[in-house]
């Protein structure tokens, strides 16, 4: 194999003329981060809600939450994404659907990707939250009730503060996953990191440099997320309990 390494390629002006190839990579990185973070915030909120509902004494609420989790866990992410992107606009009432289809294509790609990643991840977050709640001793709930808290108050003051602390480590891996999963959105044309890496190959014929650069970018995201989540873990550690001092 006589491959010509050429790292200078990143500083060359890109095919679009107004940017360098490094600029392409950075804009892809920005897109990956913006998409993953916005989807993550939604996924946390939704996942917490669904996770709590799964432990609810009301059969209908718990059943709804179980169905939600099973639905989003048993369909491949790519299929979900295509359904959000290609199917949903068709099923909307015609006026809304048409207005949506005429909006900025980048906006459409971003919205479909964000909703898809958020709901997909929320089902996983919900499972972690449920596991966290169920791993608390049952006596904690009884102690809250015995002091006269209502069930919602018991969740708010007693169960959830501890459950959320317990799920920080498993949520770290879900947080990492959402960044990796965001690469799937390149399939509907969203120009995030992996897509920019691929464009680079097409335009520069320097696949290895581009491959290594994209890999390094994902590694950096990984390290940053783990560092941040470890900070969070220390921040919420309970003295005398679970990693606390």
């Amino acid at each position: 194999m006589n491959y010509q390494w050429h790292w200078g390629v990143f500083l060359q002006p890109s095919a679009s003329g107004d940017d360098t190839y490094l600029g392409w990579m950075l804009s892809g990185l920005k897109m990956t981060i913006a998409l993953s973070l916005s989807a993550w915030v939604l996924a946390l909120a939704l996942g917490a809600l669904i996770g709590v509902l799964r432990t609810a004494p009301n059969k209908w609420l718990a059943g709804f939450a179980t169905a939600y989790v099973e639905l989003f866990r048993n369909i491949p992410l790519l299929v979900q994404l295509f359904i959000w992107y290609f199917v949903l606009p068709e099923l909307l009432p015609e006026s809304i659907g048409n207005a949506y289809k005429q909006s900025n294509p980048m906006l459409q790609q971003f919205l479909a990707s964000m909703i898809c990643l958020a709901l997909f991840t929320s089902a996983r977050v919900a499972e972690q939250v449920r596991a966290g709640i169920n791993s608390l001793p049952k006596g904690q709930k009884n102690a809250g009730l015995a002091l006269g808290f209502t069930l919602p108050q018991t969740y708010r003051f007693v169960i959830l503060p501890m459950a959320f602390r317990l799920v920080v480590p498993p949520l770290t891996s879900e947080f990492l996953n959402i960044f990796k999963n965001s690469a799937v959105c390149s399939t509907i044309g969203l120009l995030e990191l992996a897509a920019q890496g691929r464009q680079l190959v097409d335009y520069t014929a320097q696949p290895y440099e581009s491959f290594i650069a994209v890999t390094v970018a994902y590694l950096l995201i990984n390290v940053t997320v783990m560092f941040l989540m470890r900070k969070v873990e220390h921040r919420v550690a309970v003295p005398g309990y679970l990693g606390g001092k």
């Binding site: 006596g139 904690q140 009884n142 102690a143 015995a146 003051f157 501890m162 602390r165 309970v238």
Partner: peptide, 9 residues
């Protein structure tokens, strides 16, 4: 309670 059930946080 048997296991105290103070709120650890």
């Amino acid at each position: 309670f048997q296991h105290f059930e103070l709120f650890p946080h």
